[in-house]
Amino acid sequence: MSINVRLEINNITKKFKQKTAVSSFSMVIDSNECVGLIGPNGAGKSTLIQIIADILYADAGDIVLDGQKISKMKNHIGYLPQYPNFFSWMTASETLAFMGTLSGISKNQLQKDIPILLEKVGLGKEAYAHVGTFSGGMKQRLGIAQALLHRPAFIIMDEPVSALDPIGRREVLNLLKDIKKETTILLSTHILADAEEVCERFVVIKNGYKIEDATKLELLNRYQDSAIFLAVQKKDVKWLTTIEHLPYVKRIENCGEGFKVYVNHLEKDAHRLLQYGLDSNVLFTKFDLGLQESLEEIFLELVV
């Protein structure tokens, strides 16, 4: 699509009776970004996604796509619900034809596009099977197909892979990687590893509040420990007690099969430590700089 998508979410607040699901949430998504909305169950992800998809009303705040209210831009948005539900009596290609007609796509165009799209999402053989016979993964793929059908500039997906088995997950993730080349994507998930594969930017939401918004690199750097991971041979374990008293070593932690040595200045101190080790005739089996926590750990740290 020719429009340059820029989605602005301004101060969205949504209350359900007593519970506030989303509290003054703001963010901006630029063209060709792939943003992962991450949060534990009940954090308000689905509510936010449904507000963006114009299924729910926000109590306050507005959402603007390319300078227009989101409700007027439905043709530029593809939406995949958490549990895509279709009419069980329709076949896969009938479903797409129906959804496509609703988006105002001409019959000829649909006839051309549907088989290609079904092939793309791996449902080529099931084009004329009834949706009622589909498994969860197949429905999910059909859901993705319907979200792509009208070639939207912006796709919103609510937990696209959470309900799938590992094989289905892999297929859908590969599909997403393919899609994101030409489309802006916002997807929600509570499994960080999934988001990590396709998204560059993560927005973490907890209890309705945005608590983090950063790219993967920023996140990793921000939560990087100045620590050295090292492992030595058994006979040299004694040596470790001596380094504890070195002025530049803050503390030592036992960690799995090795030790984490916390220092002040990572590179300078690593050099000194290595030198000290060599001088003491210690054989290192592992020496790792700048221990990175996995995103999963960062995520846990953020939300728990």
């Binding site: 449904q50 998809a53 114009d54 299924i55 439905k74 043709n75 948005i77 939406y79 619900p81 549990y83 895509p84 539900n85 279709f86 009419f87 959804m99 609703l102 988006s103 105002g104």
Partner: peptide
């Protein structure tokens, strides 16, 4: 109940 109405209305309908 099955969400089809909301789903249909996410289209320009």
């Amino acid at each position: 109940a099955n969400g089809m109405m909301a789903f249909i209305l996410t289209r320009p309908v």
